[in-house]
């Protein structure tokens, strides 16, 4: 298939992140997996707006071919949301660790009973 290389990287990152979320038992590693998935998604958005040879969407620089600015603005939004959710997620994990003394979901489950 003639997919751009960046799309393959997107798929690999997305798959790696999903695998991490589904198989890891450590909450911190699950948070990292979520971030890897998000990185893949952001790369997809950026690559979607860009074709080789495009320049940054800045006027006044004499550039004729420029990347599509709309997905770039959406990517900015997505990065900020991702950072916020990660901060909240890590805060919950810190509180869970203070309460149960572990970040392993199996141990937490056995302690909850």
């Amino acid at each position: 298939m003639a997919l751009p290389v960046a799309y393959w990287v997107v798929l690999i990152l997305f798959g790696m992140g999903l695998y991490c979320i589904l198989t890891e038992r450590n909450l911190i590693k699950i948070a990292v997996g979520l971030n890897i998935m998000e990185a893949g998604l952001l790369l997809f958005l950026v690559r979607m707006a860009y074709s080789p040879g495009d320049r940054a969407p800045l006027l006044g620089t004499g550039v004729i071919r420029m990347a599509d600015p709309i997905p770039h603005a959406l990517t900015l939004t997505a990065i900020v949301i991702a950072a916020s959710t990660t901060a909240l997620l890590l805060s919950f994990i810190i509180q869970i660790h203070r309460h149960y003394g572990t970040v392993d979901i199996d141990e937490i489950r056995s302690k909850m009973k």
């Binding site: 298939m1 003639a2 997919l3 799309y7 393959w8 997107v10 798929l11 690999i12 997305f14 798959g15 999903l18 695998y19 589904l22 979607m48 707006a49 860009y50 074709s51 599509d68």
Partner: peptide, 21 residues
């Protein structure tokens, strides 16, 4: 995940190219 990735790759290949869009 491999099945999902192959499906997604198929979907990505269907997207219109950037120049065209």
């Amino acid at each position: 995940i491999v099945i999902l990735s192959v499906t997604l790759a198929g979907a990505l290949a269907e997207l219109p190219s950037v120049e065209q869009r």
